[in-house]
Amino acid sequence: MRVNGAVESLDVQPWVSLLDALRDRLGVTGPKKGCDQGACGACTVLADGVRINACLALAVQYDGREITTVEGLASGEELHPLQAAFIRHDGLQCGYCTPGQLCSAVAMLAEHRAGMPSAVTERSGELTEAEIRERMSGNLCRCGAYNGIVDAIRDVAAQEAR
């Protein structure tokens, strides 16, 4: 498995989740465990660029795949535009859901670019605020930083569009 670009060789039992393999075996603790049931999104990581809930993935199923966690978003010291935007728009409070929100947002923008619809998609294909909210609804934030998160994503989407 490649994790954030580095090859990680890992011998885990088949009942170990991808999330626990990352957090407990590899010490990659950016992905968070909020529910372990696919109900909060805190564990969201990218598998070959696709967002998934690492808590419901068995590590063995991801043998040979490229996993990106929040630790892999920045380029060295330079934050990913979404990371910087989250700070600027205060799209976080306690920070626990933040890594999942960020990974989710990265993939969400890619999904939208690729033309994937959502439950509220209108024909225009514009990334409206309603679109962002629906597409990000798999990531709970109990602190209620939703407005800041949406503002951060809109900001970055607008930068990309320019």
Binding site: G41, R51, P117, A119
Partner: peptide, 16 residues
Amino acid sequence: LSQALLAGASAQLRNM
């Protein structure tokens, strides 16, 4: 069918 799927779960779960 597309709408039913989009109404279900979250994008992460749908991807899996």
